[in-house]
Design a protein around this nucleic acid. Structure first.
Length: 424
RNA sequence: GGUGGAGUCGCAUAGCCUGGCCUAGUGCGCCGCACUCGAAAUGCGGUAGGGGCUUUCGCCCCUCGUGGGUUCGAAUCCCACCUCCACCGCCA
């Protein structure tokens, strides 16, 4: 949620920033008008309540029954008017909240213009491009040939866009998770395994609701939701808390299974591990002060690159265009890895600075001393390892002409294997 | 799933039956001041969050789990819901 006060006090700046993201200026003007009306109602309501309070005291101390009746009649009028004012205020606040809930975050001034992934601007490259003598095979072909990926049976059990890993792929998955968690733990990110079936509030607080409802699995019997990323429970950990500024940045590494309906993705990535309804992921999450968040964004992005480089993958970091940002993000970097089987760069990880947008909804604040005012924290999230996509990239990158796939050196101790070999 | 209990200003509690001197008391914690060479102890004062108004100083309103209701007036009465705890049953 954006700051309504900023919209009031600095309308032109907010309007300029949000129109970059495609928000209609007229809508913002309407919001500003509603805000003014709301405040006028607050003033009137406060006055009426104040009157009523005074009168109520006088009634309690009335000297005679006649005096008492007279005062009661007077107060009745104020109460009637107050109920009208309160009704109008409630209505306008409901409208305002609904409209605000749909507004995206103000973009970073340096985030590039544009509408979709093609407008993203590459900012750096990492690793070296793999050289294959034979034409590269894609991860589905490789996984099936190695006997570690069974998509037919996954579909039989659960429908399309599901995967079944078996044998060495399981060690690969668990090794990747431990590799990422070890890396993060050593850098101050506390490992967390959070709940993945959560209340609506957690999704609202992180900005996924009401905007992305069609992407989220809902369990109506209990009115709960399966999260699409552990960003959701990690952010909600400090819902309605006032953190000690000295404890910031507060850093976590969440591991969870993630569920996504992929409602708008018909026809895209229908094969393999790139886009499935259920996948495991290690996620980084940081709570920082407003002053720290830009640096923390760079820090998380750097760690993402190191994690991918450590796996011998080649790719680039792109600065996502404002029109392609998620609602909560002020700026987002994606790490795109070269997939030899597809002959293109594909997003493997992604890192967003959400500034105070989630914190305002979550009422997550910090302060240094009891006598100071509170300030909203900034929240940031980034993928450390999206396991399915990473396995795809590893298979395609490290495949060899003889049909085997090398396990990168850093991963060998975690996986317990140095090569994946087709069954005899 | 069943039964019972409980949600009050950081923590612990009083207040609710009997609505109005509740501007929510008390203890602990915390901050400041005094005393002290310093500290402890002691004394005094302060100590929530949010919103609005205001050039300033300040002032006002809301929040006693949440939302409704009754009433001139609700922490207090009524209804619904949420959450937590205990025990029983079932269960990895």
């Amino acid at each position: 949620m954006i700051d309504l006060r900023a919209l009031r006090d600095d309308f032109e700046a907010v309007a300029a920033a949000l129109t970059r993201r495609g928000v209609d200026r007229a809508e913002l003007e309407r919001l500003a008008e509603q805000d003014a009306r709301r405040r006028a109602l607050i003033v009137e309501g406060d006055q009426l309540r104040s009157q009523r309070k005074q009168a109520g005291k006088a009634i309690g101390q009335a000297s005679s029954p006649e005096e008492r009746e007279r005062l009661i009649a007077q107060t009745k009028e104020a109460s009637t008017r107050l109920s009208e004012v309160e009704a109008e205020q409630a209505q306008i606040e409901a409208d305002l909240d609904a409209a605000l809930a749909h507004l995206p975050n103000l973009p970073h001034p340096d985030a590039p213009d544009g509408h979709d992934e093609d407008d993203a601007v590459p900012v750096r490259w990492f690793g070296t491009a793999p050289q294959h003598t034979a034409p590269a095979r894609d991860h589905v072909e490789l996984g099936e040939a190695l006997g570690i990926l069974d998509l037919q049976r996954a579909a039989k059990i659960a429908g399309t866009r599901n995967a079944l890993l078996r044998g060495p792929a399981v060690w690969l998955e668990l090794g990747l998770v431990r590799y990422a968690l070890d890396y993060l733990d050593a850098r101050g990110h506390t490992p967390v395994i959070p709940p993945v079936l959560v209340r609506e509030h957690a999704l609202y607080g992180t900005g996924f609701l009401p905007g992305s409802a069609e992407e989220i699995y809902h369990v109506p019997a209990d009115d709960k939701y399966l999260v699409g990323t552990s960003e959701v429970p990690l952010a909600a950990m400090h819902d309605d808390e006032i953190l000690d500024s000295a404890d910031l940045p507060l850093r976590y590494a969440g591991f969870s299974t993630n569920f996504r309906r992929e409602a708008g993705a018909h026809g895209r990535d229908t094969r393999g591990l790139m886009r499935v309804h259920q996948f495991d992921k290690v996620e980084m999450f940081s709570f920082t002060t407003a002053e720290q968040s830009d640096d923390e964004h760079e820090r998380l992005t750097t760690m993402q690159v190191e994690l991918l480089e450590g796996l011998g993958l080649h790719g680039r970091v792109v600065d996502i265009a404002v029109g392609d940002l998620g609602a909560s993000a002020q700026r987002k970097y994606d790490c795109e890895v070269w997939l030899p089987g597809q002959e293109r760069y594909r997003e493997l990880t992604s890192c967003s600075n959400c500034t105070d947008y989630q914190a305002r909804r979550l009422r997550c604040r910090h302060r240094a001393h009891p006598e100071e005012d509170t300030a909203l924290v900034h929240t940031l999230n980034g993928t450390a390892c999206a396991v399915g996509r990473t396995i795809a990239a590893l298979l395609e990158t490290h495949q060899r002409a003889d049909g085997t796939v090398a396990v990168p050196e850093t991963l060998v101790p975690y996986v317990g294997l140095d090569v994946l070999t087709p069954p005899a």
